[in-house]
Write a protein that binds this DNA or RNA. Structure first.
Lengths: 207, 207
DNA sequence: TTCGTAGTGGACTGTCCAGTCCATTATGTG
DNA sequence: CACATAATGGACTGGACAGTCCACTACGAA
C-alpha cells in the first residue's frame, strides 16, 4: 500500500522512510527465496540491522509487511512486462518478450520461481486479503499483455475476432506453470516449452 | 514408497495396514486443502483417531508421511489422465481430457488447487528429496500425455516432426498455471483459457 | 495358555516465532 | 534551547508444533 507512513498513519521522516524501504526490499528478497512463512521477523531484524520495535513501528504486523512486498513485486513484474509489451508491434517483439521471461527466470537461478506465483500458492488459501491482492496483481499483469495484443489486433496483425483477454490470461498461466515445473526440475526447459506454446497461441490468431 | 511396513521395515498386520492407510489418506486430504506445513500431527491424530506413537510407528517422521502422500496423489492424477489419454485417438478425445481437467478442478471447489502443484511450490525449495520426488511425478504425468500424443502421431493425426515431449510438458504447464490463477481468483475461467491454449497447441501440429 | 511383538495412549521437552511492552536515543520545529 | 514525537533497543510472553519416551493393551504363533 503506502510506503510513506507508520502504522498510525503518521508521516515518515527521511530516515524513517529509508528504514522502511530497506525492510521491505530485504523482505521481498528473502520471501522470494524462501516463502513468506519461512522468513521470520528475527531473520529480517538480522539482515536489515533493525529491532523488533522498528518492524512494528512501520508495519502493523507481518501480514502488512507481506502486503507491501506483494505490491513491490507486482510493480516490478508489471514494469518489466510493460517495457516489452507497451509498444508491442510485431511477432518479433513478442518473441523478445518471451526471451525476457526466460532470461528473468534464469537470472534468478531458478530460486523461488515467480515471486507472485509462489506467494499466490502459499497464501491464497490462507489469507483472503492476500488472495484478493494477488488476484489483482495477476489481473493487472494480464491487462498489460492484453493491451499489447489489442494493439496488434488494431494494427491488423491479429484477427478481429481474437479474444485478447482470454489469450492474455492463458499466457500468464503458461508462464506460471512453466516456472513451477522449471523450479521443480531445476531446469528452464519446461518454461521454454510453455513460452513457446504461449507464443504459438498468439501466432495462431494472426490475421 | 512402500505402504506396507513400519519404520523398522517390519511387515504390517491387517489392522496396522488399515491404520497406516487411514493416516495417509486423511493426510492427503488435509494437505491438499491447507498445504503440508499447515497440517500438524495433532490435527492428524484428531481426525484419524490415532496417537502420536502411532504416527511415529508407521512413519519415520513427518517428511516420510508427506512422501507417501505425494505418491498417493501422483498415482491418482496419473490414473485419471491415463484413463483419458491411454487410448487417445482423436482431437475429440483430447477435448474430453481437457474437460476432465476442468471438471476435476471444479469438483474440488477450487480448494487447494492441484495437489502436486501446491506441494511442488511449497516444498521444492525446502526439501531436495521432495523436489526430486515431485520432479519425477511431473515427469511421469507428462510421459502419459506424451505417449498419447505419440500414438496420434503414429496414426497420422499429428505431423511426423511434432515434438511430442515438448508439447506434453507445455500441456502440464498450462494446467498448472491455469489452476494457480483459478485458485487465486476463485474462478475456473483462467484454467479454461489455459486448457484451450493447450488443446490449440496440439491442434496446431495436426497433419 | 504363554510370550514376544505389533499396536496404542498420552505426557513431556525443546525450539521457533509473532507479537507485546517499556525504556532510551535522535530529530526537527517553535 | 526545549519539548513533542519519531526512531530505536531488546527483554519477555504465550502458543504452536515436531519429536521423544515410557507405559499399557491386543494379537498371533508356538
Amino acid at each position: 500500500m503506502d510506503r510513506e507512513t507508520t502504522i498510525m498513519n503518521r508521516p515518515l521522516t527521511p530516515r524513517g522512510a529509508a528504514t522502511k524501504r530497506r525492510i521491505v526490499e530485504a523482505a521481498a528478497e528473502l520471501i522470494h527465496a524462501r516463502g513468506a512463512e519461512h522468513v521470520s521477523l528475527d531473520d529480517l531484524m538480522e539482515i536489515t540491522n533493525t529491532s523488533k520495535s522498528q518492524l512494528y513501528h512501520y508495519f502493523a504486523n507481518k501480514e502488512a509487511l507481506v502486503r507491501d512486498v506483494i505490491d513491490l513485486q507486482t510493480g516490478r513484474i508489471v514494469a518489466a512486462n510493460a517495457a516489452y509489451l507497451g509498444a508491442l508491434d510485431s511477432f518479433t517483439a513478442l518473441r523478445a518478450w518471451g526471451d525476457m521471461v526466460v532470461a528473468a527466470y534464469r537470472a534468478g537461478g531458478g530460486v523461488g520461481g515467480c515471486p507472485l506465483g509462489s506467494l499466490a500458492n502459499e497464501l491464497s488459501s490462507r489469507s483472503e486479503d492476500a488472495r484478493l491482492q494477488l488476484k489483482q496483481s495477476f489481473s493487472t499483469w494480464a491487462t498489460v499483455i492484453e493491451n499489447g495484443l489489442r494493439r496488434m489486433r488494431q494494427d491488423g496483425r491479429l484477427r478481429p475476432d481474437t479474444d485478447v483477454g482470454g489469450v492474455a490470461v492463458a499466457m500468464v498461466a503458461a508462464v506460471q506453470g512453466g516456472i513451477l515445473l522449471a523450479k521443480t526440475a531445476r531446469d528452464a526447459r519446461s518454461l521454454e516449452c510453455a513460452v513457446d506454446m504461449a507464443l504459438a497461441y498468439v501466432a495462431r490468431h494472426a490475421a
